[in-house]
């Protein structure tokens, strides 16, 4: 089995007092094991709903979501699903349970009923992975946003998940905290082989992915490598997204007659491409 998460014809409605909103309709998506997927989309595009369907927090009204082949509707195997697909949310304050860092990281393994020695060993190794080991006895509210978010990630990896879904984990962080969190996520994917689904509206974070999805009104409107998706700047802008300044520069220069391969994101690639075009 190659896919860790499979959406088969999923429909999900969100009902409020006034009306029913269809968030997703006949939605299909596969996430490959070990992959790094970035999902882009403006607010209200259905990103958060999509995330919460991935570990069974929300259940589809029709169709099915399979995690390692297990249907998320299966109540018996609910803990298996949730420990396979971990979830990190936007607001770092609202996902930390305990008032001591290591006790918070231990929360997941404790719920799984693991023996004490194993919890200790998992907590220590999770904290080391996110570079927060020296803070293990600190109180979370004394930490910075980026540090809190890394504690939240440690709390998830202590459950030894195969996949982590992160729903705008850096939206409330400053640039330093943002970079620390992204570096941690990247490391988890590359060194620990954990599948990553990163939902974000920071376009530059897409460069770390091997697959970028654009979500608009509950539909996938673009699906490809970062280079493929970023080679259509007009399309991204129409989807309510931004493009990094580097991509915009290349695009504008191309309009003025310079020749480039499209979809360049990083500063180095951009400078190299421009240098090559100017020297031609």
């Amino acid at each position: 089995m190659n896919n860790i998460i499979e959406f088969n014809n999923v429909t999900y409605n969100y009902s409020s007092e006034d009306a029913d909103y269809i968030v997703l309709k006949d939605f299909n998506l596969n996430i490959k094991k070990g992959s790094f997927t970035v999902i882009l989309g403006h607010n209200g595009s259905g990103k958060s709903t999509l995330a919460k369907l991935m570990n069974g927090l929300y259940k589809p009204q029709s169709g099915s979501v399979l995690v390692n082949g297990i249907n998320t509707l299966d109540e018996e195997l609910d803990l298996k699903v949730k420990s396979t697909v971990g979830m990190v949310f936007q607001n770092p304050d609202n996902q930390i349970v305990a008032s001591v860092v290591e006790e918070d990281v231990a929360f997941g393994p404790e719920n799984l009923g693991l023996p004490q020695e194993e919890i200790r060993q998992r907590v220590d190794s999770a904290l080391k992975t996110v570079n927060m080991y020296e803070h293990k006895n600190d109180m979370p509210h004394k930490l910075s946003g980026g540090q809190k978010q890394r504690i939240a990630i440690a709390g998830v990896i202590a459950m030894l998940p195969e996949c982590i879904v992160l729903d705008e984990p850096t939206a409330m962080l400053d640039p330093k905290g943002r970079q620390d969190v992204i570096d941690t996520i990247y490391k988890l994917n590359k060194e620990h082989g954990i599948t990553i689904v990163l939902i974000t509206h920071f376009m530059e974070q897409a460069k770390y992915a091997d697959r970028v999805l654009v979500l608009n009104n509950g539909e996938i409107t673009a699906d490809g490598t970062p280079i493929e998706v970023f080679s259509k700047p007009e399309f991204l802008k129409n989807s309510g997204l931004d493009i990094p300044q580097t991509t915009e520069l290349i695009f504008e220069l191309a309009k003025k007659g310079l020749n480039f391969k499209n979809g360049i994101i990083s500063v180095d690639d951009t400078a190299n491409a421009i240098a090559a075009a100017l020297r031609k």
């Binding site: 919460k52 949730k82 971990g86 949310f89 609202n94 349970v97 231990a106 929360f107 719920n111």
Partner: peptide
């Protein structure tokens, strides 16, 4: 209220099921 909602979802995501079979880091 919003924090409570968020926290409940975060706890559920971390396999909290009302404390059944819960063990402890610190004994």
């Amino acid at each position: 209220v919003k924090s409570a909602y968020d926290l409940a979802e975060a706890m559920e995501s971390r396999c909290y099921n009302g404390g059944e079979n819960k063990t402890n880091l610190k004994v």
